[in-house]
Design a protein around this nucleic acid. Structure first.
Lengths: 180, 180
DNA sequence: GAGTACATGTAATTAGTTACATGATTGA
DNA sequence: TCAATCATGTAACTAATTACATGTACTC
């Protein structure tokens, strides 16, 4: 499906970037909630995208010797990206989740043991939720940016991540209630 | 992390199973919402688990020639599984989601184009939601089973899947509102 | 006799993670 | 001068998907 390919094309389509910038973007709060890749996956993919004519780069010499490659999207790359973006896709059958897998088997634990695990998960999801809500307030003042700007994309996925955390916490609370 | 290993150990711990049964279990309504594997991944993993002493099997001859292997968990396998189950794990940093990736880049589409994609996703998530809610009613009468039964695990993850769909639909509605 | 479900495997490829490997630049 | 960050790559391994490959049993 080459999802990483399109994730990268989309980023470089927003603005020219180095591999390092892409790595940083994947660590960013909004993106990190629904996509991620290590640099060891990014650099080979960039090389491939250049070979395929989707991206090109200029080598930038910083200081004495330090080289960095600034990637730009080509017209072919932009076409390919837009065609991908327009696709109407089926929803994913499975959203893999290790804690749900553990919950599925929780009858093999003592009630107290499992309740502790539930509480630990809740604590972590609450922290994530608070963090995301703080970003929404500070960066966006809780208000959606203008249509047609990349910032609106950032806002929507951030909002989605917050709703996802809400639902996760509500689910954990239901499980805790059962086990109490 | 060997998650498939523990997914399989957990299933066989519930009751002896063939590889085919495990495949079917992964297609089951509850499990399929948070875990999945193809038979091409299951059979080699079963072989490995036997080599590691976690599982053993009896070959059952059905009819003329047809062989099936009924796997049973060993005491070592059960120990390993329970130790894994007791682990307190960090929440996943990323829940990969291709539609959220597309949403992140939606400013590159026309409003009408993207709204159509949002509506298509909503339709699919609503169908999934209705299906899950129907299972919850028919199988569990909307009531949690007794503690200490595998059925409670089934119920909790099913409930979690429903809440997840609720949140997804709520998020899509927010996005649709913005784009309308 | 045809179709579906049962039943098990391997091969080839793609995706993703962890570890190995190197070096420059910037600011305290 | 030390630490953090910038910057790029490869190697080895694990995880997962798609395709190839085969045959049985049951029901209509």
């Amino acid at each position: 499906m080459r999802n990483l390919k399109y994730a990268i094309l989309g980023l470089v389509n927003r603005e020219p970037m180095t591999g390092y910038d892409i790595k940083k973007a994947f660590e960013d709060r909004a993106l990190t909630s629904f996509w991620h890749a290590e640099h060891s996956q990014i650099y080979p993919e960039l090389k491939k995208l250049v070979e395929e004519g989707m991206l090109e780069y200029d080598t930038d010499i910083r200081g004495e010797k330090m080289e960095k490659k600034l990637y730009t999207i080509t017209p072919a790359g932009r076409d390919e990206f837009l065609n991908w973006l327009r696709d109407d896709v089926p929803i994913e059958r499975t959203y893999k989740d290790i804690f749900r897998l553990r919950t599925y088997y929780s009858d093999s634990l003592l009630d107290r043991e499992f309740e502790k695990l539930l509480q630990s998960q809740k604590k972590q999801h609450k922290e994530k939720h608070e963090y995301l809500a703080a970003v929404k307030e500070k960066v966006f003042n809780n208000t959606p940016p203008e249509k047609g700007t990349p910032e609106l994309g950032d806002f929507m996925v951030l909002d989605g991540a917050i709703l996802r955390e809400d639902a996760y916490i509500a689910w954990l609370d239901k499980c805790i209630e059962i086990y109490k």
